[in-house]
Computed example of a mutant assay.
Amino acid sequence: MKNILWSVIILCLSTFLLQSCSKPNGLPNSTGKTLEMIVVTNNKEQWNSRVGQTIKSFFGQEQIGLPQSEALYSMVNLPEEAFIKMYQSNRDILIIDISEKITKAQIENKKDFWASPQRVIKISAPNTESFFKIFDENKEGILELFNMVERERMINAFKTAQNIDIANALSGKFNFSLILPSAYKIAKQDSNFMWIRKETLEDSQGILIYSYPYIHENAFEKDIIINVRNMMTKRYIPGPAEGSFMKVADQVIFPLTKTVNFNELFAIETRGLWETEGDYMGGPFLSYTLVDEVNNRVITLDSYVYAPSQNKRDLLKQLEAILYSFKMAEISKGA
Rank of each mutant, 00 (worst) to 15 (best):
T257Q: 04
Q205M: 14
N156A: 10
D292W: 05
Y210G: 08
G282K: 03
N42Q: 06
Y184H: 08
M75R: 05
V40N: 06
K44T: 11
G278N: 10
I207A: 05
D223C: 06
N48F: 00
F262D: 00
K104E: 14
K133T: 12
G65L: 09
F220Y: 12
R153G: 12
E221Q: 09
D136R: 07
L145Q: 03
N109G: 06
N25R: 08
A241H: 05
L35D: 02
I226K: 00
A187N: 03
I209N: 05
G32Y: 01
V252P: 11
V120H: 04
T103H: 03
G52P: 09
N90W: 06
Y212I: 11
Y214P: 14
A125I: 04
D165T: 09
P117Y: 00
G52Q: 00
A187D: 09
A307T: 07
K188H: 15
Y236E: 06
N138D: 14
M231R: 03
T259S: 08
G272P: 13
G283V: 03
W114F: 15
D279F: 15
L323Q: 11
G283D: 02
K101S: 12
D250S: 10
M246W: 04
V228N: 00
I299E: 00
L256C: 07
E144C: 11
W195I: 01
Q106K: 12
F262S: 01
S171N: 14
I102W: 07
V51G: 13
S191N: 04
Q53G: 11
E275R: 06
D92V: 05
Y87H: 14
M86H: 07
L201I: 10
Q46C: 10
M37T: 02
S177I: 01
D112F: 01
N261Q: 02
G60H: 04
E140Q: 15
G26H: 07
E150F: 11
N147F: 10
D190G: 11
I102L: 09
E108Y: 15
I9R: 14
E320N: 10
G141E: 00
G52K: 08
E202N: 13
F59C: 12
K317M: 09
S89I: 09
G32V: 02
G272D: 07
W274F: 11
Y306G: 05
T276L: 04
K133N: 09
M328F: 14
A183Y: 14
V8A: 10
S7R: 04
I331H: 12
P240I: 06
L35E: 12
S30V: 01
K101N: 11
A241I: 06
M86A: 13
K333G: 05
K333R: 13
Y288G: 02
K258D: 07
N295M: 10
F16I: 01
L27T: 02
N218T: 10
S74R: 14
E129K: 13
T276V: 15
T54W: 07
I9N: 10
S69I: 12
S204P: 05
I121R: 02
W47S: 06
Q251Y: 06
I38C: 01
N311Q: 14
L143Q: 14
I102Y: 08
